[in-house]
C-alpha cells in the first residue's frame, strides 16, 4: 500500500539543516577536527542526496545518511592512524590513569572515600534532558585518542577487533583504552550528575 514518498516533498531545507547539525555533532565528537568533520558530513550528504535512492520518509533518510557518515568516519580514522598512530600511553590520556589510580589504596582495593556508590534511578536519568547535557560534556572532555577508540566501539558500533584494526593498535592496548574511557566517563557522570547534589563528607 505504502508508496515511496517523493523525497523533495519531505526533504526541505530545515530538515536537511537539522540532520546536518546532528551529523556534525556526531562527526566532531569522534574526529575531534572541525575541518575533517565538516568534509565527512558534506561528502556523506552529497552521496546520500545524489544517490538516486527513494526514501520512505525522513527517518529512513536520516538513518541512511548516518550509515554513510559512519563509513566515512571509520575510513578517516583508519587513514589517520596510519600516519599518526594512536598510542595507548602518553599525552592527556595518562592523566586519566593517574586520576583513576587515586581511587584505590595501595593494595588496589577501593579507597573508602572513592568507593563507587549506588546510582539512584538511572532510568529516570536517561529521560532527563539535563542528564544528556552532562553526558555530552563528559564525552567532549575525553582526550582525543581515548575518545576515538571508545566512540568507534560504542557509537560506530564496531566490534573490538575492528576498532583495534582501524586504530592500528593491539587488542590489549584496545582494552586498556576502552577501560580508561569507561572509567573516566563513569567518574564524570558520578561527579556531574549522580552524586552532584550530595554533600561531600
Amino acid at each position: 500500500m505504502e508508496a515511496a514518498i517523493d523525497p523533495s516533498a519531505v526533504i526541505d531545507n530545515a530538515f536537511v539543516e537539522q540532520v546536518r547539525h546532528d551529523m556534525l555533532a556526531f562527526a566532531q565528537l569522534q574526529l575531534r577536527d572541525a575541518t575533517l568533520a565538516e568534509d565527512a558530513v558534506q561528502e556523506a550528504l552529497t552521496a546520500a542526496l545524489t544517490g538516486g535512492r527513494d526514501f520512505a520518509g525522513r527517518s529512513a533518510l536520516k538513518t541512511w545518511v548516518f550509515g554513510i557518515l559512519r563509513h566515512k568516519i571509520v575510513d578517516l580514522i583508519r587513514q589517520q592512524s596510519r600516519t599518526t598512530p594512536i598510542s595507548a600511553f602518553g599525552g592527556d590520556d595518562d592523566s586519566l590513569d593517574q586520576a583513576f589510580d587515586t581511587l584505590f589504596k595501595e593494595n588496589a582495593h577501593w579507597h573508602p572515600a572513592h568507593r563507587p556508590a549506588t546510582w539512584g534511578d538511572p532510568e529516570a536519568s536517561l529521560r532527563d534532558k539535563h542528564f544528556w547535557a552532562v553526558f555530552d560534556a563528559c564525552l567532549t572532555h575525553l582526550p582525543k585518542n581515548t575518545a576515538r577508540v571508545f566512540m568507534m566501539r560504542e557509537f560506530l558500533d564496531l566490534d573490538t577487533g575492528e576498532v583495534c584494526a582501524a586504530a592500528g593498535i593491539s587488542t590489549s592496548n584496545c582494552h586498556v583504552i576502552l577501560h580508561r574511557a569507561r572509567s573516566a566517563l563513569r567518574g564524570c557522570l558520578e561527579k556531574g550528575w549522580f552524586l552532584a547534589g550530595e554533600r561531600p563528607c
Binding site: 546532528d22 541512511w64 548516518f66 550509515g67 560504542e154
Partner: peptide, 21 residues
C-alpha cells in the same frame, strides 16, 4: 553507561547505527 551510549547514538542518528549504511 552502555545504555546511555545507545540512547545517545539513537537520538542523534535516528535509529540503530549498525548495518544501516
Amino acid at each position: 553507561l552502555r545504555d546511555a551510549c545507545r540512547g545517545y547514538r539513537e537520538e542523534l542518528t535516528g535509529g540503530e547505527a549498525e548495518g544501516s549504511g
